[in-house]
């Protein structure tokens, strides 16, 4: 499964790599990273790989996670990727807005990787 993680915090990358060490080693998961919404859009447009899941932070400088979400929903006609938004704890407004813009799921910070892995398993089997 090809996962694109969008977050302006670069330290999220080693965290994900370490958390998914086994899955990456086994070839179950391929992780790609983008440090901004714009970078994510470019990456998606290049079509280097078929991204199945996008994990995006909401609050980012420049293009926000919500704008990215809107962009994805507008431009991707066929086989749209699964999008999970990562919102801050207790951030009702962004949660509601993501919902309206068509996010598939939500994660709240701090990221619970056990929960995330379970969701990925569900996605793999059902989705």
């Amino acid at each position: 499964m090809n996962i694109l993680v969008v977050d302006d915090e670069s330290d999220i990358q080693p965290l994900f790599r370490q958390r998914f060490r086994k899955e990456i080693k086994n070839g179950d998961v391929v992780l790609d990273f983008a440090l901004s919404g714009e970078e994510a859009v470019r990456y998606l447009a290049s079509g280097e790989s078929e991204v199945v899941l996008i994990l995006s932070d909401v609050n980012m400088p420049g293009m926000s996670g919500l704008e990215l979400l809107r962009h994805i929903r507008e431009s991707h006609g066929t086989a749209p990727p699964f999008v999970m938004m990562i919102t801050a704890y207790g951030d009702e407004t962004n949660y509601q807005q993501s919902m309206r813009l068509g996010a598939n799921d939500f994660l709240t910070k701090p990221l619970d990787f056990t929960l995330l892995k379970e969701k990925l398993k569900d996605l793999d089997t059902h989705g």
Partner: peptide, 8 residues
């Protein structure tokens, strides 16, 4: 955010 990193 930094605290999340510490914990994670």
């Amino acid at each position: 955010n930094p605290l999340n990193f510490v914990n994670n």
